[in-house]
Design a protein around this nucleic acid. Structure first.
Lengths: 196, 196
DNA sequence: CATTAAAACTAATAATTGTTAGTTTTGTTC
DNA sequence: GAACAAAACTAACAATTATTAGTTTTAATG
């Protein structure tokens, strides 16, 4: 039988993971069957196991790829010496970019993490919590420096993260909004509000 | 065998629906089995079918109960004669209250609607789209009246709805934040921003 | 106490699930 | 072209799924 070539610069495992992300987003992890995934890949279900260990291993790969991307971004920006508002703006923009460029993966990480098995579930939640904590520290520094209003930092972080997460609804709506307009609108809304 | 009494002022169907909402939230609709639900209710699985028609019927009940609650609230407030910012504030506060008082149901409606069957799936999406459209009209009126900055109304509505939706993470964190503090922080953030 | 309807039970069904075992095909290297 | 490993295949497994059929128990009514 004909072999399906993996995409250029990617192993077959990568192809499977990518198709799985699309399928998991569409159907949800539990409702997405290995047979259905195999069909998308162009192969019979048992053949998948020549490349992957298990269904849940695919989910792990997706969730941690996303989680690591956010963690690494935070590592990459110089938190100590930048203005808090500049930091927050760049973080918001990064979240929006991730949502637009890795839609399926981010969606799956946001929605299907609860189906991770231990110890991956705990690790994932710990990593997310640590990420939120770092954002809270940025906010609190901003308040002390007088850049930000005094608010409950946790609620503010939650508000920002949830808002950008909501971009998962955008593709379904097919609004023609440029990425720049999208980013600017959200950044302004979340930082300066909407009241004149 | 002993019958399990339904909660006071509620039929057994109501009890099943309530337990189902908790289970669907915890496990996801697909991973939640009727046997597990039956166990929560205190009964064998087939006995559930004396009260309900099917598993997906339960999901329908939950999703539309939530959708209707939001639709009815918008109907109940006098959109024409109130200031736009007052309207938005009361709507945000209602969303937060719903999230706090009907946590499981709102969570399930937000996360598991994709498992609805037709025509309920289409109806649900239409109803949500119509709701968003009404919010957009409120925002656009506010811009024309000079109350609000000129922004992309869809993005602003999406930002607000997503932000309040994010309260689904709150219970897991067990932060001790009063409802009043929570509401005020979010309302201020979403309307006036966080920059001093 | 007899009757009756609601609601519990047990047993079973057909379908689908992730995954394994064992076999054959493929494509590359000598 | 022979050899070999990678990766496809078929067949099958045991477990779990929602749901139905048929029977018994419960609790309230007369």
């Amino acid at each position: 039988m004909a072999r399906i070539k993996p995409h250029k610069n990617g192993t077959k495992k990568d192809l499977i993971t990518q198709k799985a992300a699309a399928l998991f987003r569409l159907k949800g992890y539990s409702s997405a069957s290995m047979r259905h995934l195999a069909e998308e890949v162009g192969v019979e279900a048992p053949s998948l196991y020549n490349h992957i260990g298990s269904k849940s291993e695919i989910l792990q790969a997706i969730c941690f790829k996303v989680a690591n991307a956010f963690t690494f971004y935070l590592d990459s920006i110089d938190i100590k010496y930048a203005k808090c508002t500049t930091l927050l703006e760049s973080i918001i923009r990064f979240h929006i970019k991730m949502m637009l460029t890795s839609f399926n993966e981010v969606y799956v990480a946001n929605h299907e993490w609860k189906h991770l098995k231990e110890p991956y579930l705990s690790n994932f939640l710990m990593q997310r919590r640590a990420y939120e904590k770092r954002l809270m520290e940025i906010m609190e520094a901003g308040m002390q420096a007088g850049e930000l209003k005094k608010t409950n930092a946790y609620i503010s972080v939650l508000t920002i993260l949830s808002a950008v997460r909501g971009l998962e609804f955008l593709p379904a709506r097919k609004k023609d909004i440029s990425n720049a307009e999208l980013e600017n609108n959200m950044v302004n809304h979340l930082l300066k509000g909407i009241i004149k």
